[in-house]
Design a protein around this nucleic acid. Structure first.
Lengths: 336, 336
DNA sequence: TTGAAAGCGCTAACAA
DNA sequence: TTGTTAGCGCTTTCAA
């Protein structure tokens, strides 16, 4: 019984083959290993390809070959400029190698991430890139069972699902605390949110303060995780209301720190004279502000680039955990 | 001759079918139209699915069904916060409907976009979303020939490839010019880059100025298209050097306008007393700054949402061109 | 209600 | 050098 399927209208290998009067395989070869095809045949096939405007179907090709050139990325939020830099670093190398990037918003919760991962896995990606190391058990289990190369970024963990390329949130916070201590600050407040990644930054700050025996409190906002300038303003005000004599403020994101800077100016609080401010992530505006915003510069773009390298050449580096480090960038808001 | 393929290790429909002792088709039905399967059978199949941890292969499914739930998006730059908002609006609705977003960086040139489109088309996406209406002839031809639904955003054109959802760059620029004219400004300078979308904004500005018979010059920077705060500073300085008596500055992006605000403060130029400043896109910081930055608020997120709606339900709206409009948001830097 | 056959567009493995 | 066969994981169409 002949089954008639409605044609998709697309030009396929068979169309090209028919026109060039060769078999489908020969056309396939012209595309993949042209050297294996006789010049005359190749010319004929290439003419047919051009004439028909044939475009190979990558999905079909990869299904047949059992490969995949899609890398799935879960971003907490698409409009977070810092994660976007990582996606960018990844995409740049990936596109160069002909790969594709499937992007999904995972919200800021592990549960939302799990849903995103589940769906993404159904696309049989070559690898999946996650921002952060805090996931549900289900997520970890799915990922491990799938055998898909998984890359965690934006933090470090001793127990990665697969590989982890990031920097130490704790160490970064610690470095800020040390900086405050050595520049004579005596009353630190760390402001942030409840995300594990951010908590680790605050913990590092506290540890450094403890080591130097100076006061350190933390202020953990209950605002939704999306970093808004406005939240920075509020945190600044709350922090100083709670501890009027505070002389050093650390914010887990420059987005908040910029809000704090704005609010300080409005309230006539002098930075860095009255209070030093240090942020995180090196926002585009941090260096442009007056005073310049001291911040922790993280390897945002290069985490993406390294992730891509790892996907493209799995054997390039063997280590499951790669620490790319961070830099304390000191500007006017909290000078050296 | 029996050909042995190395097993991918993945759990397939056949594995589930074998375990549930039914045919592959029955499993497929349990997934797509469970009502068509006898309850007892269904229970057995569902148990097998759970036991095996089966995850359907969406790529294979869509290839067989001749459908696709992937929407391809070409962004000029991944870290441009304004385009990111559009991607976000798109992703939100798309994910809700189980769709996926394939993202590609198209640089800021039509040629780079063409390369991105070509590659993306090979993925047989359900639709492809472009930022802007300026494309190479090849891009337009490919897209038209492919039959893939194409959505152009961030501008308007009388001759869309397929559908266009945006706002008028020209009208927006015109509105800014009108605003300057009616608030007593007499020497306008429009600052921007050479992108067609941006040129149209400046053209609108000039047209409004001409209509009100006031002076208007434009300053088109040759900087690479990535909007840097630093460029805004430079433009501000150059503009005032060229026309010291200018009393109104329009920047085609808030990124530049913020740089200008920063530079004005540094140079002691009073805003808005000495010079009024209006930007574009309503940057997160625009409302937070002091003075607040007047700007053109565009339907960034909603262009994405509308695009998604159009992809999900092609018949929802028939019009090939949808004008979502814009708003002139006046703040301290150029008050009403 | 279930299954068998055919096929989506392509490539791996083999044979000629 | 080229073609044939089988099959990637799934759905469609038709038959039972």
């Amino acid at each position: 019984v002949a089954i008639e399927r409605k044609s998709t209208g697309r030009v396929t290998l068979d169309d090209v083959a028919a026109r060039a009067e060769v078999s489908r395989m020969t056309v396939s070869r012209v595309l993949s290993r042209p050297g294996d095809v006789a010049p005359a045949t190749r010319t004929r096939v290439e003419a047919a390809i051009t004439a028909l405007g044939y475009q190979p179907d990558l999905g079909a090709r990869e299904m047949a070959a059992g490969s995949s050139s899609i890398v799935a990325v879960v971003l907490p939020a698409l409009d977070n400029p810092f994660f976007a830099r990582t996606a960018r670093g990844l995409a740049a190398r990936l596109h160069q190698a002909g790969g594709h990037m499937l992007l999904s918003e995972g919200g800021y919760t592990p549960e939302a991430e799990e849903a995103a991962v589940r769906l993404l896995l159904s696309r049989r990606p070559r690898a999946i890139v996650l921002m952060g190391v805090d996931h549900t058990d289900q997520t970890r289990a799915m990922l491990r069972a799938s055998g898909v190369r998984t890359i965690e970024t934006w933090d470090l963990t001793p127990d990665p699902i697969d590989v982890c390329i990031g920097f130490s949130s704790y160490q970064a916070g610690f470095a800020v605390g040390e900086h405050f201590a050595t520049t004579g600050r005596r009353r630190i407040i760390g402001c942030g949110t409840n995300l594990p990644r951010n908590r680790a930054r605050l913990k590092g700050l506290e540890a450094a303060a403890a080591q130097h025996q100076i006061a350190c409190e933390t202020l953990v906002g209950d605002q939704p995780a999306a970093g808004l300038i406005q939240h920075g303003r509020e945190m600044f005000t709350r922090a100083l209301a709670k501890t009027p004599r505070a002389d050093a403020l650390f914010f887990i994101s420059d987005t908040y720190a910029l809000g704090a800077l704005l609010e300080a100016a409005r309230q006539g609080v002098r930075v860095p004279d009255d209070v030093a401010i240090v942020g995180f992530n090196d926002h585009d505006l941090a260096s442009q502000w007056d005073p310049g915003l001291s911040t922790v510069t993280v390897p945002d773009t290069s985490m993406g680039a390294h992730a891509a390298a790892r996907v493209l050449d799995p054997d390039a580096v063997a280590a499951p955990v790669v620490d790319l480090g961070f830099t304390l960038t000191l500007r006017g808001s909290s000078p050296p």
